[in-house]
Design a binder for these strands. Structure first.
Length: 944
RNA sequence: GCCCAGAUGGUGGAAUUGGUAGACACGAGGGACUUAAAAUCCCUUGGCCAGUGAUGGCCGUACGGGUUCGAUUCCCGUUCCGGGCACCA
């Protein structure tokens, strides 16, 4: 019987749908397992062979866990909001909802052909009102919460108001934008607008005037992770800094928990490291500096408090409030000129040229340890957004301060013995401290660090600073709050209206607030976001409904928020929604959340390390504080699938001709390499007729061949349309079948690694499936018999069980595929067609090649799905060797000597070695140093 | 600059975590079947050397050292490639 994959795959895909084979429900009697893929953005280009890689890997795991008896949740959905659909809408006027719908339909069609075990009844789309209801809901909860530092969790804002009413800001330890100070009496005296403004300083979702990454080309702001090297991640457009009023999420409040949580996760070290870098914890000291001849005091942050005796100048960020206070009248002109210069420079300028620039403020700060006066400068190398926006400069031991000091001719005092600072600063945190204070001088309270190791000196200074009230120990994070507003149409609308310029939340029962229709998807003529084009976008507080803008009276009808939420809003809690996707009373029911807990295995690309994976951890922690999610971390284990790159092919055209020369001969000519569609190249040999037909200008092309063939060059590049190297999964499925595609993608190499797609090798996987299929057949008859398997046959089977089980547990699928091939070859050579061997083999291969497995399972006489069977158990005794080898090591060489029966105990073997019962030529009068028994058992012994 | 991960045949990659390096597949070469092609099957395939031959010897896991009876694996140094962070004080 021939392996007719087309019929088999079609048949089983239909049956799975009809029988709802992959639909799961909560079942208290079975242990759960939650497998999740990062849901895709449905782009217009459809899937290429790289996309399903992670889905196949997780599908194998999901099916394996199911075969082990777990109740497996393996859902799929779409991250449906995004820029491409909106850009397309701007160009064509086609509503993004329509484009998105079409793209989803195409994705679904492609996915269905590959045979995944997704429970489509749980599908979510971020653009569905039923879904974004809960995105809006979570936002409102964040608005209604503040972060309490001492209890380390989010709390309802009412608790904070209570605190203010009783004691103002006294004893307040909460996350805040800036440190405010007021008394209870003052709070009571504030009017409502003032109180709202004050509360904004503490809310987890808050509205603030902040410096944002503004991208003029996209007409919107971007989050830090969406900006790479000063240009937008999508499209590569320039980004500039601009002050705008934006919604923000106080992610920074969770910095420490986001950092600590990493230790509990089974993620790769590199991904954890990436997140640690992004969070950027830095432990240091905040110190107060008085200003000479003034009562102004300011605070700086440093990780090197020990270098206080080497401070020769101070530097303020140009944007700092202090600049105004500390600039002296005779320096005013220079400072103004400098500030104007800084303002002109974009983020990109700063990154590309690191010029040393700055200006003297005219003021002097007083070193709290020595009483010395230190000049205060202003320079763009100090960032307003980090620490306090002011630093103490220690040119001897910080390369930036060093460059500044050299440029402006400021003194440099070395503080580490033996460090050479004549050419560059010595930045390392090591060495013995000197000049602290300089010989002959004394510091406050006789404080001295001379002779200390740097680490010790840092600690000593911290203690001194704290005990003398010169400052305090402080931890800073690089992680900033996330900007949550986008000036875009295709995103979740904010459930917010404005009254007296202050935002008001829509009543919870009025959610979801649906995205309005607009005539144009571009910003309005007055520069408002696209929602400004909506005619019906006002909130009537009497009827609690959306009404026409014309009725706005600012008494009972108010304007609604015009911004929409960013892409990460909808993707931050989707894994929770999958647990209970049709619940319209809550994001998730406590029962469903309690059953599914969190994601056991999450598979997706590492490009989300500093975006989605930070935001959703933050979001989940917030929901955890709220009591909605029972687990603090959303993704227990995470596997990053590597990108599949394209393998591009090139033809070489001789300059100014229409003649193409084969790869081996191209060096003899002056040629231009041109990308050629990989689909008309096979084994790097060009199909010349197809090439001529490919493009009209090549119709009469001529060729210089080698050995009668045109050989193409190749290179590994990103898979993209413009490089003509896109390989489409549908084509592969059509030619070889889904099972072959699945097997081949796994065989290609380790899941985590980036690797080029090479269609050439796929025959091997396809051939294997044919061989596997043929094991069950004699010509046209199904030939599986009920004979007892031999020891040898059982050994092949159990080797396979062991290998495949171990491999799946560690995602090393690329080595399971060869194991199947070896077992199949061994059994075929033995002409084994025994049920007791082949039936377990079918179960083993089912996660990898589900269609063929189902078909054979049915042929084996079962009338249920193979996925209702149980994963075969490994029997150690089947693998026991008939003999063990003794290996003898002497004189630096390792040799094999004798074989013993497998059941020989160590004592027997040891005795044999002692009795020199060894092949004499290896002894030859030399000492045996050690005797080692392989494999598995090992004795180390010394024979004198 | 700092941090992380990696380097094995012509190619993708194996190696039970310190025990016969190169599994398996692709590619290449040779052969069988066939009128022919497709399909299928078999053999060879890290390098060098010796031998008619079965076979034997030497070298070999980026480079240089070290630990060990024994190192692709562990340690130190170097080079190269990939990733993250980056005027973050």
């Amino acid at each position: 019987m021939e392996y007719n994959f087309r019929d088999i795959e079609k048949k089983w895909q239909q049956r799975w749908v009809a029988a709802q084979t992959y639909k799961v429900t909560e079942d208290e009697n079975r242990k759960k397992f939650y497998v999740l893929n990062m849901f895709p953005y449905p782009s217009g280009a459809g899937l290429h062979v790289g996309h399903p890689l992670g889905y196949i890997a997780s599908d194998i795991y999901a099916r394996y866990k199911r075969l082990q008896g777990f109740n497996v949740l393996n859902p799929m959905g779409y991250d449906a909001y995004g820029l491409p659909a909106e850009q397309y809408a701007i160009q064509t006027g086609q509503h993004p909802a329509i484009t998105t719908e079409q793209n989803i339909a195409r994705y679904r069609e492609q996915l269905d052909k590959i045979g995944f075990s997704f429970d489509w009844s749980r599908e979510v789309r971020t653009c569905d009102p039923g879904y974004y209801h809960w995105t809006q809901w979570a936002f409102q909860k964040m608005f209604g919460s503040f972060y309490c530092n001492s209890c380390k969790k989010a709390q309802p804002i009412e608790k904070l108001i209570e605190h203010f009413e009783k004691q103002g800001t006294a004893d307040l330890d909460v996350a805040q934008t800036e440190e405010l100070t007021f008394t209870a009496a003052e709070w009571h005296a504030f009017d409502d607008v003032k109180r709202q403004q004050v509360l904004m300083n503490y809310r987890i979702a808050y509205l603030a005037e902040t410096m944002v990454n503004w991208c003029p080309a996209l007409g919107t702001v971007l989050a830090n992770d969406e900006v790479v090297n000063g240009v937008s991640e999508r499209g590569g457009h320039p980004v500039e800094q601009k002050k705008m009023k934006q919604w923000c999420l106080r992610v920074s409040a969770y910095a420490q928990r986001l950092l600590d949580g990493l230790d509990t996760l089974e993620w790769t070290d590199s991904l954890k490291e990436t997140q640690r870098n992004w969070i950027g914890r830095s432990e240091g000291t905040e110190m107060q500096f008085k200003v000479a001849g003034s009562d102004v005091e300011f605070t700086i942050f440093t990780t090197r408090a020990d270098t206080i005796f080497g401070v020769t100048f101070m530097v303020l960020a140009p944007e700092s409030e202090l600049v105004r206070q500390l600039t002296t009248p005779d320096q005013q002109k220079d400072v103004d000129e400098y500030l104007a210069y800084v303002k002109k420079r974009t983020e990109r300028d700063r990154i590309s040229d690191r010029k040393v620039t700055g200006v003297f403020s005219g003021s002097y700060a007083i070193n709290p340890f020595t009483g010395e006066e230190i000049p205060v400068w202003i320079s763009e190398y100090v960032l307003a957004g980090y620490g306090t926006g002011a630093i103490m400069a220690v040119p001897a031991h910080d390369s930036r301060d060093y460059a500044f000091a050299r440029h402006f001719n400021l003194p440099i005092i070395p503080l580490i013995e033996g460090a050479d600072i004549s050419e560059e600063s010595f930045d390392a945190k090591e060495g013995t401290v000197m000049n602290s204070p300089v010989a002959g001088k004394t510091a406050l309270d006789g404080f001295s660090l001379n002779g200390c190791e740097v680490k010790e000196a840092i600690q000593k200074t911290k203690e001194f600073v704290t005990s003398h009230h010169l400052g305090r120990v402080k931890v800073n994070y690089r992680l900033r709050d996330a900007i949550f507003s986008r000036q875009r149409y295709w995103g979740e609308p904010f459930p917010v209206y404005y009254k007296d310029g202050m935002p008001q939340m829509l009543p919870e029962e009025c959610l979801p607030l649906e995205l309005p229709e607009v005539d144009k998807f571009l910003p309005t003529e007055t520069g408002e976001p696209p929602l400004g084009n909506a005619k019906r976008w006002a909130w009537d507080t009497k009827t609690n409904s959306v009404v026409d803008n014309a009725t706005i009276d600012n008494q009972t009808v108010f304007p609604l928020e015009l911004n929409t939420m960013p892409g990460f809003a909808g993707s931050s809690a989707y894994y929770i929604r999958y647990m209970d996707p049709h619940n319209d009373a809550a994001l998730v029911s406590p029962e469903a959340d309690d059953y599914w807990q969190n994601v056991d295995l999450y598979v997706g690309g590492s490009e989300h390390a500093t975006g989605h994976l930070i935001y959703s951890r933050f979001w989940n922690k917030f929901l955890f504080d709220l009591g909605v999610s029972c687990k603090e971390e959303p993704f227990k284990k995470l596997v990053n699938q590597g990108m599949i790159q394209g393998r591009s092919n090139f033809v070489y055209r001789i300059q100014n001709t229409n003649t193409f020369v084969s790869l081996g001969l191209k060096d003899q000519y002056d040629v231009t390499p041109l990308h050629v569609d990989v689909n008309i190249v096979s084994g790097d040999v060009l199909d010349i007729e197809a090439f001529k037909a490919w493009r009209p200008e090549y119709a009469d092309a001529e060729f210089i061949l080698e050995d009668g063939k045109y050989v193409c060059g190749w290179a590994v590049e990103k898979m993209s349309k413009s490089m003509f190297n896109v390989v489409n999964p549908d084509m592969i499925v059509e030619r070889f079948g889904a099972d072959t595609l699945r097997l081949y993608e796994m065989f290609l190499g380790p899941i985590e690694q980036a690797k080029p797609w090479d269609t050439n090798g796929i025959d091997g996987s396809h051939r294997f499936l044919k061989k596997f299929w043929n094991m069950f057949w004699n010509k046209e008859t199904f030939a599986v018999n009920d004979e007892e398997p031999t020891k040898q046959e059982l050994k092949s089977l159990h080797k396979l069980i062991k290998k495949v089980t171990e491999d799946i547990e560690v995602f090393s699928y690329n080595t399971s595929v060869p194991a199947f091939m070896i077992a199949t070859n061994e059994l075929a050579a033995l002409k084994c067609q025994k049920r007791a061997v082949l039936e377990p083999m079918v179960i083993l291969i089912a996660p990898f090649a589900p269609h063929i497995a189902e078909e054979l399972w049915e042929e084996l006489g079962h009338n249920t799905s193979v996925f209702d069977a149980r994963w075969p158990l490994f029997d150690e005794s089947a693998l026991v060797e008939d003999a063990v080898k003794m290996m003898v090591a002497f004189n630096g060489k390792t040799r094999f000597a004798i074989e013993f029966p497998a059941d020989a105990d160590n004592a027997t073997i040891e005795a044999a070695a002692r009795n020199h019962e060894l092949t004499p030529k290896y002894l030859d009068g030399k000492q045996i140093v050690k005797v080692i028994i392989v494999p598995g058992r090992m004795i180390n012994m010394v024979v004198k």
